[in-house]
């Protein structure tokens, strides 16, 4: 997250409001991973609070992601419900580019446990969500969604969808 954009308002009242908005966004689940919030997935890039006006910048996992309109609508509704907010703009920004390293470590564990989906973080071994072995080999570049490929675990044989 771009801390300077998030924390560029030293005024204590605005800072409290900033936290309320962040808390509201932390309650918005990703449509494809119920129980995992868009903040944990690393979609939140910046929040700007100016009195009753709030601007939220989100980063899409993939630019053609079909869930973008739903995510924006859910985020907007959540922020609009915060006391003192009456104008919300949610937009998707094209930089920076989203990558799996933006997924919070705790969420990586839950995605593996709840959906049997692995998260491939560059420079780190990816372990099989079913048996735990670091033995995943790429089987198909394409899976059911653009942000996941299909790998196979050499240890247990399971086909593992992997967020890349």
């Amino acid at each position: 997250m771009n801390r300077s954009a998030v924390c560029d308002r030293p005024d204590p009242a605005a800072f409290g409001q900033q936290n309320a908005v962040l808390a509201a966004l932390a309650g918005v689940d990703d449509p494809e991973y119920p129980g995992v919030s868009i903040v944990e997935l690393g979609l939140l890039e910046a929040v700007r609070v100016d009195g009753p006006r709030v601007e939220v910048d989100l980063v899409p996992t993939f630019s053609g992601c079909p869930a973008l309109a739903f995510i924006a609508a859910d985020a907007e509704a959540a922020v609009r419900a915060v006391d003192g907010v009456d104008d919300v703009t949610v937009r998707f920004v094209s930089t920076p580019v989203w990558g799996p390293e933006r997924i919070a470590p705790g969420a990586r564990v839950r995605i593996a446990a709840d959906f049997a989906v692995a998260v491939a973080v560059p420079g780190r071994p990816t372990s099989c969500p079913v048996c735990g072995a670091a033995a995943l080999v790429e089987e198909s570049m394409f899976g059911p969604v653009r942000c996941r490929s299909i790998r196979r675990c050499r240890a247990c044989g399971e086909r593992i969808e992997t967020i890349r």
């Binding site: 079909p66 198909s140 394409f142 899976g143 059911p144 969604v145 653009r146 299909i150």
Partner: peptide, 15 residues
């Protein structure tokens, strides 16, 4: 949405 659904379904079949 239709593109994504198509990819979903072909991807499910693939798996």
């Amino acid at each position: 949405a239709v593109l994504a659904k198509t990819q979903d379904e072909i991807g499910h079949a693939h798996l």
